[in-house]
Amino acid sequence: MRAKGNYRLILNASLYPQMKLASMDKKGITFACVNGEGRDGLSTFALKFKDPTIVEEFRVAVDKHKGSKPIETAPTSKTPENSPTATDA
């Protein structure tokens, strides 16, 4: 998941078909997933959004993709947009 505007990475986790999303207040959602390499078990994450309508958009997006297989992508070329910078190291 990436932030709007600057596309900063917020969460990089695998979705799975049995993944449950639970509402948290009106503007939040919680879920359990495996996040990171070499970690065993599930971690619970809680996301809070500014607008309650974004919670439903997030739920729909997760439900749409949690059963799909990852898309294999071709290697990207080194252009200024995707080249590593000194802050990426």
Score class of each variant (00 low, 15 high):
82 N>Q: 03
61 A>D: 14
70 P>N: 12
33 C>K: 02
23 S>C: 02
53 T>S: 15
27 K>R: 13
15 L>H: 05
34 V>Q: 09
31 F>I: 08
22 A>S: 11
89 A>N: 12
32 A>C: 07
87 T>F: 07
62 V>F: 11
54 I>F: 13
55 V>F: 12
4 K>R: 11
20 K>P: 01
25 D>P: 00
83 S>E: 13
19 M>R: 10
6 N>F: 09
44 T>E: 15
11 L>R: 13
18 Q>K: 07
16 Y>K: 08
20 K>L: 08
76 T>F: 01
30 T>S: 15
89 A>G: 12
42 L>I: 01
33 C>R: 04
44 T>I: 10
44 T>S: 11
4 K>N: 10
52 P>Y: 05
28 G>C: 01
29 I>T: 13
67 G>H: 13
86 A>D: 07
67 G>Q: 05
12 N>W: 06
61 A>G: 08
30 T>I: 01
41 G>W: 07
45 F>G: 00
56 E>T: 08
74 A>F: 04
1 M>S: 15
17 P>H: 05
44 T>R: 14
80 P>H: 01
16 Y>E: 08
82 N>F: 06
14 S>K: 14
49 F>Q: 04
65 H>M: 05
37 E>F: 00
25 D>K: 10
34 V>R: 08
85 T>F: 00
1 M>E: 12
84 P>Y: 03
5 G>T: 13
11 L>Y: 10
63 D>S: 04
34 V>I: 01
66 K>T: 12
6 N>D: 15
64 K>G: 00
76 T>H: 04
8 R>P: 00
